[in-house]
Design a protein around this nucleic acid. Structure first.
Lengths: 189, 189
DNA sequence: ATTTTTATTGATTGACGAGTCAATAAAAAA
DNA sequence: TTTTTTATTGACTCGTCAATCAATAAAAAT
């Protein structure tokens, strides 16, 4: 009873199932069968559409990265001042869709995966470069050394992500933490 | 030709081999055979001394944590002012022995492992609590809100570790980055 | 109407790897 | 000197899992 045009539906189902499964397991040690089962199909079909497990992971990673990009753009588009743009970037990183426990866990695992997968590394570099250049751009009117500031902020974002991933008790809103740390370094104009 | 008293020697060899192997693979996806081979013994012997793979990982993690503790204490013992103690804590995190690529990679992988292993999580919490309380202690004379500052600094340490783990081009000395970020928040006495 | 294309799965293969075990050997204790 | 304890390994078992494949079925194209 095959309906046509299933490919995009199946792909999306597999991607979200993969993220959920990775989140539940807390690692990439997840079987294609488990992912497929959660997505409501046989593992053979998952292989049919994705070829192999790594491609599923990569697609999941792309999905998360794309979700982040959406959060960034939607906030950036309504920001007027440089300070607004900075806030927008930090807030996007901790937006609900990015800061969901499942997503955080998957994100962290992809970070590690990048160590042993050139494809994953490439994807990550794209994200890193984009975030960095966005930060520098927002910081340029606010600082003499936008690069150094941007690197520190990016590190804090990643660091707070890790803590969240570990379920560490978050003392405060991470956004507030980062902005408070950054504030004294900005020109007061 | 068994010489007696091999146990501690074998254990240490396995632990360092495990860290090396994890560093080389960039993941915990490492076989006991590979670890044992690198350590110069059969996999059966590794099982004999450690019981199972997880215990090897845990021991490796403990080894890294202990190495970090040594760096901390050696620096803390010669620090006189509060500012010195703060620098000591940050510098210890990036000491040669802690900032070795192999160690960074292993460290990051243990971080992820903690997600799915209660034992690993316990170890990590010990480290986190210790670092946090050390930081707060050093910051108390320097700030009204030592907790918030400590959390930010801890996050930056982790974040810069991640970037190092990914081999991201490090623009500056991470220690300098953190201290520069922190400086404006400290009492100027 | 038959052929092709798309969707789908159960069953199978093949590899790999953790953990066990029996066997061997040498030191130490009895 | 016999026995026990410690060290050590090669061979084996058992499970798991990624990936393949043959088979089935329905839509679309011819």
């Amino acid at each position: 009873m095959p309906k046509l045009g299933m490919e995009p539906i199946r792909r999306k189902a597999l991607v979200t199932a993969a993220i959920a499964e990775i989140g539940a397991a807390g690692s990439l040690d997840v079987t294609v069968s488990a992912i497929s089962k959660r997505a409501g199909m046989s593992s053979a079909l998952a292989h049919h559409y994705f070829g192999n497990k790594d491609q599923i992971f990569l697609a999941a990673m792309r999905h998360i990265l794309a979700g982040f990009a959406v959060e960034v753009h939607s906030r950036l588009s309504v920001a007027t001042t440089a300070r607004d743009r900075l806030s927008a970037l930090v807030e996007a990183s901790f937006a609900r869709s990015c800061f969901d426990p499942e997503v955080i866990s998957a994100w962290l695992n992809f970070y590690v995966k990048a160590h042993s997968s050139a494809d994953a590394m490439r994807l990550l570099r794209v994200y890193q470069r984009r975030l960095r250049s966005n930060l520098i751009c927002a910081l340029r009117p606010l600082s003499q050394h936008p690069e150094a500031l941007a690197d520190g902020i990016a590190a804090m974002i990643d660091g707070l992500y890790i803590r969240a991933a570990l379920g560490a008790p978050i003392s405060q809103d991470p956004v507030a933490t980062i902005l408070a740390f950054t504030a004294p370094h900005l020109k007061d104009t």
